[in-house]
Design a binder for these strands. Structure first.
Lengths: 256, 256
DNA sequence: TGTTTGCAGATTGTTGACAATCGACAACGC
DNA sequence: GCGTTGTCGATTGTCAACAATCTGCAAACA
């Protein structure tokens, strides 16, 4: 209960803050928290593509019973991050280069749309914000800090799409980016590709700031297509199709 | 076990058909079947937007225990068809006009892409298939059969997108269309809008068959934008924002 | 030696029981 | 009459137990 600070306000008008333990407990169930934690672990690379997640282990690790874990698995499967196979277990999904290509193709479309929209609607505040993110990326590239660069890169694109003002677009986009995250090789950007990537970001920002929808859309698409090309180069250099140790040949039956 | 029909084939080489009861049992769990049935009921309108789904009732209706129902609910929530609220229950989602607008905006983008792709790649078989669907739509429009028209309309767009050849696009598209389905008013197309809609389909097909990506893309976008405009007209005539009887005001807390 | 059979252990799938939460309604007090 | 408190029933959240499935390995057999 909040401490009384204004005698003129009735107790009933003073709701607790959303971060108050009471509110947190009322709005979060175990399956939701398990889902979030597993998603975090998958996106952070703590759980590898193809890795099996055993209910009993996950439940023990998180201190819950198997029920909430099973529920979380169902949600994670629907979001594309894991794959259930009846009677055989749950596996972190593996994304092959073909699927990555499809995601890039879609991303190019969505990023272009966002760029065009922003070129027409961006406020001074939005531009300042994007400039700050690009500056942080520049700093990371200069320092050769690939991890920091990637984090800022993801943040840049996410913010661009968020500023486009279509929430449904943002949700679809985030889901695609999460799936692409599972495609581990794409996250292994190398220091020698950062300069090109950085130039592309500047180009995008310049055209958005100039209020040039056609130019911004083209720059966004060119950037995503170039990222896709860089992905292929990295993939080829790493040896192409590698089953990554997953028991793919053993899993013949359909899911759940 | 399959009946021996060719003595030259070893028993181990004769897998059962995917529709054999053994294969069906091995590849389908109760939560998956529950999910499918509830999804079917929601899309068919058997479960109304805003309607509460009680675990015990659903379990009794489908003859299973609550566990698989709960798991199905998690998947359905992630797919956007229902909404869980901790300690209060599960509700078929309600889509407002703002969200419908966002979906239409996205659809226009995706449909345009599909149209452009098809104009460049469609085979004679694909064109024949699309022509057959458009002919079926014509017949339904002539007969004033709105339901048959809508079914064929959904089939036409789905097939168009499927033929574009990007599986990820198709999955995203289907998810959006399913969500739009929950927006009940859009399914209430009236007989007097069918002629315009029919002309638009013919225009799309003509440009795809002509191998005109720009024209096909424009025609697709124009068609989706016109559908959106018709949606608004229907919405306005029906009285605009109507909470559809859902206990919206009572549900203040966040989901699960 | 290669193949088949049987068994045990690991894991998943489902169910039912108990605990917890919430809303509605009746009873009580001012 | 209105506001507060208490109770009950409906429903959800979680857990543990049991059943079922699958895989790997050892033993038996040809």
């Amino acid at each position: 209960m909040p401490v009384a600070s204004a005698p003129s306000r009735r107790v009933a008008d003073r709701a607790v803050d959303a971060n108050h333990p009471i509110a947190l407990l009322q709005s979060n169930s175990l399956p939701t928290l398990v889902q979030r934690e597993l998603e975090r672990m998958i996106l952070a690379g703590d759980l590898a593509a193809g890795e099996q997640l055993r209910e009993v282990e996950v439940a023990a690790m998180l201190g819950v019973s198997r029920g909430p874990v099973r529920e979380a698995f169902r949600a994670l499967e629907e979001s594309g991050l894991v794959h259930l196979e009846k009677n055989r277990g749950v596996y972190v999904r593996q994304i092959g280069v073909h699927e990555a290509d499809e995601i890039f193709e879609l991303r190019a479309l969505l990023d272009e749309f966002a760029g065009r929209r922003l070129a027409a609607t961006a406020t001074a505040e939005a531009l300042a914000e994007l400039r700050a993110i690009v500056a942080a990326m520049d700093a990371a590239a200069s320092a050769g800090d690939v991890d920091a660069y990637l984090a800022a890169n993801i943040g840049f694109h996410d913010r661009l799409v968020a500023l486009a003002g279509n929430d449904k677009l943002l949700r679809v986009y985030r889901r695609l980016v999460n799936e692409l995250h599972v495609f581990r090789r794409t996250s292994l950007a190398r220091g020698d590709t950062l300069p090109a990537s950085t130039r592309e970001h500047h180009d995008i920002l310049k055209r958005i700031a100039a209020g040039d929808p056609d130019g911004a859309g083209r720059a966004m698409r060119a950037h995503v297509d170039a990222s896709r090309t860089r992905m292929h180069a990295t993939w080829a250099r790493a040896g192409g199709a590698s089953p990554a140790g997953a028991p793919a040949a053993k899993r013949r039956r359909a899911a759940s």
